[in-house]
């Protein structure tokens, strides 16, 4: 197994870690950098609870080789709020019942953050299409969609 030194920006700060070739970004984030906000769900790329942003784009960190993060900017749920101040989107998730048990919430927030950065005024269809890769077993999704609509029109 080859080992590789990777350098990337993690929530604005430069990190350098040495990883084995098959190490996944999800595991590096949780085990090496201590950022456990990114959750492991299905580990097969379906559920979206491990979503992080790599250079602003949503990625499935359980399918993302850590070596591919070399030279990129990675944002996790810990990097969404500014100075511990929740974003309008995070506040909207609280106000509109966008979560219940909470396990999928980091992935939902990270995905929806990328959605609003890509489409600041998304249509309902765009919201549903973008968010369909983030599964939630509690809310029935209506609260999540309402929260994103509210944040977009705030």
């Amino acid at each position: 197994m080859s080992r590789h030194t990777i350098r990337f920006e993690l929530n604005g700060a430069t990190r350098e870690v040495e990883v084995e070739a098959d190490r996944l970004l999800l595991d590096v984030l949780r085990d090496e950098t201590g950022l456990t906000g990114t959750k492991e769900g299905c580990r097969v790329g379906i559920c979206g609870t491990c979503t992080v942003l790599v250079d602003g784009r949503p990625m499935t960190s359980c399918l993302f080789p850590a070596v591919h993060a070399d030279g990129t900017a990675v944002r996790t749920i810990e990097g969404i709020a500014h100075d511990r101040e929740l974003t309008p989107l995070q506040t909207a998730f609280i106000e509109h019942g966008g979560f219940q048990c909470g396990i999928c919430t980091p992935g939902q927030i990270v995905s929806a953050t990328a959605l609003l950065e890509t489409h600041p005024r998304p249509t309902d269809e765009q919201i549903r299409e973008w968010m369909m890769g983030n599964l939630c077993r509690c809310t029935g999704y209506f609260g999540i969609v309402r929260a994103i609509q509210a944040a977009a029109s705030a």
């Binding site: 580990r43 097969v44 790329g45 399918l63 993302f64 080789p65 070596v67």
Partner: peptide, 26 residues
């Protein structure tokens, strides 16, 4: 050969592919 890696990571996890050498095109 690995590009985006979405399929390769799954194939390796399922044991369907056990490569000794991987070339990443990233």
């Amino acid at each position: 050969v690995m590009a985006g890696a979405t399929a390769m990571v799954l194939l390796m996890r399922q044991g369907l592919v056990r490569p000794e050498r991987v070339v990443s095109l990233r």
